[in-house]
Amino acid sequence: MIARNFAYLQPDTKEQAAAFYQEFAEPFYYGGGSEIITMCRAGDIAPDAVIDLKRIPEANVLRLEGDALVIGGCVPLRAIGDSGLFPLLKLVCGRIADHTNQCRITLGGNLCGTIQYRETALALLLADALVVLFGPGGARAVSIHEAFDERMRLLHGEFVLQARIPAQALFLPYVHVKKTAGEKIDYPLVSLSALACGDGVRVALSGLLPYPFRSRAMEDALSNRSESRERRVQNAIQCLPAMPMADYQGSAEYRQFVLRQTLAAMMEVLNL
């Protein structure tokens, strides 16, 4: 039971959604709702309105359009996976929460939620995707690298309308590995996504630091074929932007150990 009531708004258009947002003092955009409901029940948040975005047509798109794969912010992870249009993202989505929850969690919700792992960002960062954001100021299409810096950087009242993924990134050789401390369904110790691109590799990580990130310095180190694989992995680890997290799932040293093994396995799979 959620003790404190709120208004429920279900706009048919993105413009209505943004207008609703401005009408309330503490509104929340609502996609799959898993996190909002959980936090409301726990009393961590007390919205006066939830704005359900699922009837906005542009937020439900999942198709190839010209030279890009377009995924609406309200498309559930299960549908993204089932489409098979972006195999790396399919794997990523398949390891977020469990299958039933994947039927509800949306791309936009995963990117913008408070749970720090936000693993769909890994695939978008590697693919140099664009995100289309919509808010009271209208629409803006920005690079994921600009929009996502440790977390989504949204202007007041904005939501993720779509992600646009360049078609050339969709079928590059890829790896996604999520290592957990125990159960398969759990938060990651290390979640690593990689795309092989030309002679090099793009790498993004979640679970290691309190935010997902893509590191060009690590990519350069891993792509330097003049060094042995072992040395490249070591150099990449030295390029980490901060010390790995330490929490109940694993110490910083253990996370670094897991990262080392995971990077070594990735190098082998991608034949780097």
């Binding site: 429920y8 799959g32 709702g33 409901i37 959980t38 359900d52 929850n101 039927c103 509800r104």
Partner: peptide, 18 residues
């Protein structure tokens, strides 16, 4: 768990109005 349009959902994480 119940099914909504044929897909499983955890009904503790769905608003009735939805």
């Amino acid at each position: 768990t119940v099914l909504m349009d044929g897909w499983p959902v955890k009904s503790c994480l769905v608003l009735a109005v939805e």
